[in-house]
Nucleic acid binder design. Sequence first.
DNA 1: CTGAAAGCGCTTACAG
DNA 2: CTGAAAGCGCTTACAG
Lengths: 341, 341
Amino acid sequence: MRVTIKDIAKKAGVSIATVSYVINNTKPISPETRAKVLQAVKEMNYQPNFNARGLVNYRTNLIGVLIPYWDQDAKQGLMFDNPFYSELVRGVEVVTSQHHYHILLMGLGDRPQAVRDLVQQRDLDGLIVVGAYEELVTCLAQINIPVVLVDSYVEDSRFCTVRIDDEYGGYLATQHLLAMGHEKIGFLTGELFPQGVAERRFQGYKKALAERGLTVNRKYVYETKISTQGGYEGISRLLQQAPEITGLFSMADIMTIGVLKRLRETKCQVPADLSIVSFDGVLYPEFLKPALTTVDQDIFAKGRIAATLLIKLIFGEEVAASQVVLPVTLVMRESVKTLRS
Amino acid sequence: MRVTIKDIAKKAGVSIATVSYVINNTKPISPETRAKVLQAVKEMNYQPNFNARGLVNYRTNLIGVLIPYWDQDAKQGLMFDNPFYSELVRGVEVVTSQHHYHILLMGLGDRPQAVRDLVQQRDLDGLIVVGAYEELVTCLAQINIPVVLVDSYVEDSRFCTVRIDDEYGGYLATQHLLAMGHEKIGFLTGELFPQGVAERRFQGYKKALAERGLTVNRKYVYETKISTQGGYEGISRLLQQAPEITGLFSMADIMTIGVLKRLRETKCQVPADLSIVSFDGVLYPEFLKPALTTVDQDIFAKGRIAATLLIKLIFGEEVAASQVVLPVTLVMRESVKTLRS
DNA sequence: CTGAAAGCGCTTACAG
DNA sequence: CTGAAAGCGCTTACAG
């Protein structure tokens, strides 16, 4: 059923070792023998079994792409639910496919050890991990393969990272609202944990406020899940505890959609009643109603660069930069109104 | 470096066969021996190597998810570019992870034989293929593993399929425009090939027109790529060759975004100057401007069902239905205006 | 230039 | 109940 190296050897009248040599170009083989083998390979559509190959030479040509869930049961949330991740995976695919690498895609729930298991089960050559948190990083540190962290701020120098300047992004968003005259600015965010992007954007939020001599009102900050549902519930709570806010920095487009839904239900107009700056620019913000002012990032590039780094690490090549920081841009559209003060 | 069954055997003081037996629960083992083995497994964080396992027992616990490109170079288009696919993959992941199956994600360009190669290289247990066309189906037929086709209308009874009733969807879209008084209705579509969904939606379009005693004006139909870019260019051409249309059935949300972009540039108002019905409902249509009237489908469910079917096929279980057809719903929002006639 | 043989991590008759 | 051995598909010293 499987076409194996034996079949080729038999057909070409050589040993399996010879077949291996010509396929891998790993030893000088006479032109005639080579031709015979290649002919057989072609006729039988032979393709080497990467699993068997990986078993002996410790290279499976397989990398894992790990994407976190926030909701273990629903398997929702960060994972895929967010077009963000499809963009990222697409970026990864573009480069891995050029290097004959395959992608194993996995969602990661609340059991970070699952990474270690996966790596052992599949004998992965490398790992791209999105949004790693401390506990996960601890697990990763026990694994002996190259890892590229996307959107994570771990201090561990063993890992390459690719991300944007989230603090600056948060700063841009908030600073824009301030510049437009808003002072009571809400911050709707995903979980704030030390190595996460949310925390950094929060830093940027604080920094922008501080520049204006303002301090953070904890009532203006609401932590919830990064999903439409999170945005929907979050804005309700936030407006309940801080009805006076005139501006909102929403940490992710996907949350902002939920915000818009809720606001529409409560007849709260954007930007008339509430100005919004969102983040990512992944949901075609110019076509939303209102067209969303966003801090944009190039997620496709994130994926490409992460994969390029990882492949280099796997091949033991020198990497120019082990910490890649991609730019962000504030794109002004229609969701922020100028407040006269 | 790898923790293997040998390490466990040594630590537990038993043979590797015994370790295998307890791990797989495949032979009666004395409680004491079992305990020793389990203890060792735990202490060493042992996880069996699925690749090695697959080599001997012809089951790798790996399935492939294949997603077509339309643009080989840019690796864009259908693949991921479209949130449609992330939803689908998420659905697949939910069920595969419950069955200890992993997902190999691959884009598929213009070389359908790549599927066969992949299956051999990775020894996949099964395949979920999105949008298969004839040539690809021919390749799939040569492969001896279970395949579930998503969004494909091949006649081949060897394959399970899951899809929506695309003809009915196209009918609903067109019929709605007709009901609102439109008669000159454009159809912006992806490539029309026999086994594709586009062709079926086109049939629905024709059927709705026919019911009104109208025939298809070929000038009103424009075939292009399923992407924002395709939508953008497509609507330009379409309006060039048929400026008189008052309604548009756009075959995919992702194209519709491009349409909106172009229309905005040319100051063509929706729905004042052009009414639009879109398809999929995957881009938060209620928050677009204008809120898009769409024919919605549950893509997450498509993924879940496809994976469930595939797993059953792999395990040789009886499948209730080998052709699953999911419902579509017309959701009216604001992109269609009533035309008085 | 070519091949026999060992071995990668695992499972599974087969024997005891 | 337990284990030695063959074998899954492949690569790689080693010998010739």
